[in-house]
Write a protein that binds this DNA or RNA. Structure first.
Lengths: 236, 236
DNA sequence: TCGCAATAGTTGTATATACAACTATTGACA
DNA sequence: TGTCAATAGTTGTATATACAACTATTGCGA
């Protein structure tokens, strides 16, 4: 039985949490200042400050320079959903996962794609289709358009051998992404890949990834609604 | 033209970001230690530390006590989707929103609900149905089950007058929530509310909210896939 | 060569201090 | 009474310092 020493600032955080949870400190009410907390708990101001700061980052408190620290309103908190890699998702369920490359070609972008990728019509992109399986049952179709200009050189040179995983890791860590989740009916081709009929509702995630130089890739993930769902568990 | 003074730690952050973005510092590679950065930028260790710490919170770096600070892998970053209140969503699109209470009754929980809400079969919950409109067109059906034991007293006493908004604000700030997003076909009743036919794919969000004392509420939001989508724009 | 203790280096926690930047109140003056 | 400057209080930034906790390497001894 090892005794874990608790850091001082976490003691203060716990105290504040309890006061809010118990209803003693209501929404919008003022929280003791850094100096007051420091004296109350016999710590330095910087330690008390850290407790307030971390709770602010968690969205529990709101701070205004010069005015003070206040208990946040419920409304100021947003709900976040985590979109996980389907391979990890399947693995966590204890099932078998494998992926099959169906298509991997270079294509000219049409008008619609040009807009989505920020390219000119007729320019060249890499297009790939990868089908994911859970216990040998098709579960997600992944369609991906990649801007070849923004992919590292070593991937461009032997394009035919790029695995889906390399696509992902080719995206630099400093990127932005736009995600959109929709419920749709899949087109005929997608249906045949996923072994579903055209009335099955599907979850579709469209993700565009940007680097500082432009749109890197557009990924379209389609999965039958009864087999895949997005989930999250959050603590406010 | 006011000159905004930039804090020292943001200068260091920007520098580190640039090194990663330009590819000079690759994934997994070691970042200069707090002491080295402090000397390089002629600041105190605590200032350099703050830069590293904030970038770690943003998921750009990974730190290990005793070992050092390293550039994070793309994989260690997760994609988050924001689920917004539909009223706010509609307002941001510049459209008209209004909500209509269809049903508001106390019901006994059946077996399925009992499991979802952590109650015993036959216990009492509040059930409400609220239909949301965008430009007078039905866009989302909100079904909500609320555990009356965990709702503040003042809401219990005049239950018939509770508005949907009060439901939300009755949830204490210190809660957990489990979200699940699915693509489904709506049942007959929901279809008639939303004026859609039974083949229209719908986005369905199931949200369970917990406080420290148990499950507070279960909310089921259903919206036609062609009218509503979840979206996000993130910067990693 | 193997095992292990010592050690240098790194991050984590905590304190004391100083000044800057901002807010809200107080109080004097017109 | 109304306006505005002074002021007290609060958060934001920055420094210097000390020690704790942990990691990985170095090098000694068997």
């Amino acid at each position: 039985m090892t005794q874990v020493k608790t850091a001082k600032f976490t003691i203060i955080k716990d105290h504040i949490c309890k006061m809010i949870e118990s209803g003693e400190w209501l929404q919008h009410s003022k929280v003791p200042s850094e100096n007051v907390l420091a004296e109350q708990f016999s710590v330095s101001r910087m330690t008390a400050r850290r407790a307030l700061q971390e709770l602010t980052e968690q969205g529990l408190l709101v701070r205004t320079q010069g005015a003070g620290t206040f208990v946040a309103t419920f409304k100021s908190q947003s709900s976040l959903l985590e979109i996980r890699n389907i391979a990890d998702e399947i693995q966590d369920r204890g099932h078998q996962h494998h992926a099959q490359q169906i298509e991997l070609i270079a294509v000219d972008v049409n008008h619609e794609l040009a807009i989505l990728l920020g390219l000119k019509e007729g320019e060249n992109v890499y297009y790939s289709e990868v089908l994911h399986f859970e216990n040998n049952e098709p579960i997600q179709l992944e369609q991906r358009y990649v801007n070849p200009k923004l992919v590292p050189d070593y991937l461009q040179q032997n394009f035919a051998d790029i695995t889906p995983h390399e696509y992902l890791s080719s995206e630099a860590p400093l990127t932005e992404a736009t995600n959109e989740v929709e419920a749709v009916l899949a087109n005929h081709e997608t249906c045949s890949h996923l072994l579903i009929d055209s009335t099955t509702p599907c979850l579709q995630v469209k993700r565009r990834t940007w680097s500082s130089k432009g749109v890197v890739s557009l990924a379209i993930l389609t999965a039958p609604g009864d087999k895949y769902r997005l989930g999250s568990h959050l603590v406010f």
